[in-house]
Structure formats: C-alpha cells, structure tokens
Amino acid sequence: MEDWFRKYLERFRKEIDRIFEEIRELEIEISKPLFDWEQKTLVPLYEMKRLVDELIIYVDLPGVREKKDINVQIAGNKLIIEAKLNKPFSMPEYLPYTGAEFRNYRLELSLPENIDEKKCRAFFKAGVLEIHIPLKIKKVKVKVE
C-alpha cells in the first residue's frame, strides 16, 4: 500500500473514532438523570442563549428562596452554579429515588474562552436564576463598496 494512502486511512479512522466518541458523550449527557446520587444534588433545568456579544443562561431553581443560598462561580472555562433548597426534597414513593434526600442543586457548564468574567451579572426572581456573561468580541468595520 502506498504510504500516503496508509496515512490517509489512518487520519480517516481517527476522525471516525473522534465522531463516535462525541456521539457517545452526547448520548451519556442526554440520558443522564437530573440528579446526582453520590453528591445528593439535583441537576437543574437550564437554557442557554447565545447573542452576538453575550451568553444568557437561565437556570430553573424551584425550592430555592433567597439569593444568599445561591453560589455562582467561574473557574477557568467552567461555570459552576450551586444552590441550597429551602427544605430537603425526597420522593420516597418513587422506586429509583427511594431513600434519597436532595438538599442542593449543582450545575457545571463549559464556557467559551472569550468570556469577560469581570462583567458577569446574575439575577434571581421567582425561582429562576438569570446569568449574563459578556463575550469579548473583536469588531472590525468592513467598508461597503
């Protein structure tokens, strides 16, 4: 076999492996239940909107009453949200949850590299946390001819 062709096949195989790995990770993410047994934390529902120069993240935190019970942190390229429920939550009647008592929410999200962490803002109303993360965007004016 020609050397260039062998290298080509090898690159092709690696690319296929990479795609399968991405799909596998996505499947794990989708099928992941919204609770963490070991940490006894709930994973909140969230929605992320990407505007041109800002990320807006809405996190549903039912059972959290006060903003002092919420901790929002940016660590490297991770956004970590932790919040304390006003009372422990359990569902003893549902088989998978039997015996589990949840006291906190925890959500970890990956962020792009160009965030402006010093200008981040967060608001909390009616059990929904809204986080605004500005993005550093280099703007270049293009002349219209």
């Binding site: 919204l34 039912p62 059972g63 939550f89």
Partner: peptide, 13 residues
C-alpha cells in the same frame, strides 16, 4: 408549585 417543578424536570427534559 415548587414540588411539581422539581418532580417534573425529567418529563420536561
């Protein structure tokens, strides 16, 4: 309300 919102997260997802 709060309890329903927590319980129905999986169905919502």
């Amino acid at each position: 309300e709060e309890e329903i919102r927590i319980k129905l997260r999986e169905l919502m997802k």
